[in-house]
């Protein structure tokens, strides 16, 4: 039977490595994808998400079992990712295959309609990935949490500790920028 998260957090706070390991296993996918959405690089996402867990372990004495684990971890992860983006270490993302971190679910359907349609769709995916990469980090974060993690505004607001109105204004700015970047493709 799965142990409740609060029990694991209490254990991790008291130095139980097994409990912390279980928390890592439960949240590693979400942390990895959050970092991937922010950095656009598999290598950076793996590195930063694991570094977030390392720092979480160091700070585990401040864990509060009465509150959920992920928002606390996300606070650490987002600081790492935003610093990473700000200090320019994200260049490796640009060296990766153009926008390879983004997958188009509709590409096969488009390709079935003809190679030209498939190529157009691939171009759209590539341009969208590039445009997302050019958003400001906070706009990109709001977009990723909404579009790829599927969070509602209230959840994003809690995670980022900002008002819902700010979530919406960041999303609006992000979408306007993407629409402008995609131009006639829309």
């Amino acid at each position: 039977m799965q142990r409740p998260e609060s029990v694991l957090m209490a254990g991790a706070r008291d130095g139980d490595g097994e409990a912390f390991g279980e928390l890592v296993r439960r949240h590693m996918r979400r942390a990895y994808f959050a970092a991937l959405g922010l950095t656009g690089s598999h290598e950076d996402a793996l590195d930063l998400s694991q570094e977030a867990f390392t720092r979480a372990l160091r700070a585990s004495r401040s864990l509060d079992p009465g509150r959920p684990f992920y928002p606390w971890l996300y606070g650490i992860l987002r600081r790492l990712c935003l610093n990473h983006l700000r200090d320019g270490r994200a260049r490796s993302a640009k060296l990766e295959v153009a926008g390879g971190w983004l997958v188009d679910d509709a590409r096969e359907r488009a390709a079935a309609a003809g190679p030209e349609r498939g190529a157009e769709r691939e171009e759209l995916r590539r341009r969208l990935a590039t445009a997302i990469g050019e958003l400001s980090p906070v706009q990109r974060e709001a977009l990723v949490l909404r579009e790829f993690e599927g969070l509602r505004y209230a959840e994003i607001a809690v995670l980022l500790e900002i008002p819902e109105g700010t979530v919406m204004s960041r999303l609006y700015a992000a979408r306007k920028a993407l629409a402008a970047a995609l131009g006639d493709e829309l």
């Binding site: 390991g21 890592v24 296993r25 590693m28 996918r29 990895y32 994808f33 991937l36 959405g37 598999h42 793996l46 694991q50 390879g100 971190w101 983004l102 997958v103 188009d104 679910d105 509709a106 759209l124 995916r125 969208l128 977009l143 579009e147 790829f148 993407l178 995609l182 829309l186």
Partner: peptide, 20 residues
């Protein structure tokens, strides 16, 4: 509609086995 049809690329499944 366009962004709704995109998703983040899954890494190889092996990554999760080695992650911890």
């Amino acid at each position: 509609e366009v962004t709704g049809e995109m998703k983040l690329r899954n890494p190889p499944e092996q990554l999760w086995d080695d992650y911890w």
